[in-house]
Amino acid sequence: MNISKILIVDDEETISSYLDRKLTQLGYTVLVASDGEEAVELCNSQKPDIVLLDVKLPRMNGYEVCRRIKSNPKTCNVPVLMLSAKSQANEIEEGLAAGAERYITKPIGFPDILNHIKSFETA
């Protein structure tokens, strides 16, 4: 599977703009949503190859977003990489239960994020 279109969902502009800039530099098509509803919409309309999904979001939290994506036949195959400062076991479990392929806790370095994305490419 080839990954070219990445949806970044994060209400922290610092983070989303940094990732947008760096991933774009690396040649990815980057979509950015700053709230949950926008994320579901974008995912449905743009069909990204992978979603980097924060949990704490305005309007709709990441778990719900993940569930919407995974329950929508159009987007259910899009890998969701949950990326959150919430690091408790129950929080991780909820994310995975919502259908996320992977749950990564912040903080994490950029090379590590890239490695995660790339790992989906090869899989």
Binding site: I15, Y18, I108, F110, P111
Partner: peptide
């Protein structure tokens, strides 16, 4: 996380 992203990006040569 923001700091680590930045520093790790620089250290990673990005």
């Amino acid at each position: 996380h923001s700091m680590l992203l930045g520093v790790s990006g620089i250290l990673g040569g990005y």
